[in-house]
Simulated assay, not measured.
Amino acid sequence: MTPNPWRVFWGLLEHDLLITRKQLGGVLAQVLMQPLLMLLVFGKVLGALGYTPPGYARLLLPGLVALNAFFAAAQNASFPLAMEFATRTIENRLRAPVPLGWIVVERIFAAASRGLVTAVLMVPVGALVLGDLSWRTAGIPAAFGYTALGALAGGAVGTTIGSLVAPARIGITFSLVMPPLLFTGSAQFPFPELDAVPWFRALCALNPMTYVSEGLRGALTPRIAHLPAWLCVTGLAVALLVFTPASLWTFRRRAIT
């Protein structure tokens, strides 16, 4: 009898979530440090010195939550996957009695779960640093939806990179690709206010993280300039429609070589 693909999918996902739980301390230390320092320096220290405008930390924190959702998922998809291909331990997963697409989607969901956890944990860290979030509580469900979509998009991007790049080059590739994504993801500034630099605005529009940052600002801090909700959802949907098939193509190409 052919196993139910859903049961196999959930079995693989439960295995990866168990590993995530065991490694949670290291994962959090790895992915929370940079956003925490950015919030502390740009949100508190420079504000106290008068170099950033009042309320800048309130603008910055939703962007850092978006950064954690997207980058933690991308990082935790790309590096382990590259190592599994290098050591051929991926073959254990390829023997699962499901089509290859199920394995790829499971990896995206597993990576997204890490991104979602680190994004959610950024909220109490931000509250501890800033003291008062002043968020619109009615927007929390929508904010959670944007965060989940951003984590899935990051997982798809990371799976594409992890199955495309050779293990010896994954570190340098990540260091070359991720900083531009970080600084064009509208985490530190509102996208609608980039009219003065149209070339940079165009770069930010191509970055899926922009739509997570803007969606979170619209849901939690609506008084700050932000993109409309429909455009944020559309941008994230397009990212998933592009990178999910791309991750499947690169994974299949790598798996059969």
Rank of each mutant, 00 (worst) to 15 (best):
Pro179Trp: 05
Gly126Lys: 02
Val238Thr: 13
Phe70Lys: 04
Leu39His: 02
Trp249Cys: 11
Pro180Thr: 08
Phe144Glu: 00
Ser134Phe: 08
Thr52Asn: 11
Pro208Leu: 08
Ala111Lys: 05
Thr87Ala: 06
Thr137Ser: 08
Ala69Gly: 09
Leu116Met: 15
Gly25Lys: 09
Leu17Arg: 00
Leu231Tyr: 14
Pro62Tyr: 11
Val65Ala: 07
Arg7His: 09
Ala205Gln: 13
Leu116Ser: 13
Pro222Thr: 04
Phe70Asp: 01
Met209Phe: 11
Ala48Glu: 09
Leu152His: 05
Thr244Asp: 02
Pro198Gln: 09
Ala153Val: 00
Met209Arg: 09
Gly43Gln: 01
Arg93Glu: 03
Ala219Val: 11
Val165Cys: 07
Thr160Gln: 11
Gln188Val: 13
Ala69His: 07
Thr257Gly: 15
Arg93Pro: 03
Leu12Trp: 03
Ile90Asn: 01
Leu206Met: 13
Val117Asp: 01
Trp10Asn: 10
Pro179Met: 04
Thr257Glu: 13
Pro179Gly: 03
Cys204Lys: 07
Val41Ser: 10
Trp135Arg: 01
Leu152Trp: 02
Met33Gly: 10
Leu39Met: 12
Leu81Phe: 01
Phe42Asp: 01
Gly218Tyr: 07
Arg223Glu: 15
Ala96Asn: 12
Leu39Ile: 07
Leu220Gly: 02
Phe109Trp: 13
Gly55Ser: 09
Ala202Met: 10
Ile170His: 03
Phe85Glu: 03
Phe174Ile: 00
Gln23Ile: 10
Leu194Ile: 06
Ala143Pro: 02
Ala82Met: 06
Pro62Lys: 09
Leu121Glu: 06
Pro208Cys: 12
Arg217Pro: 07
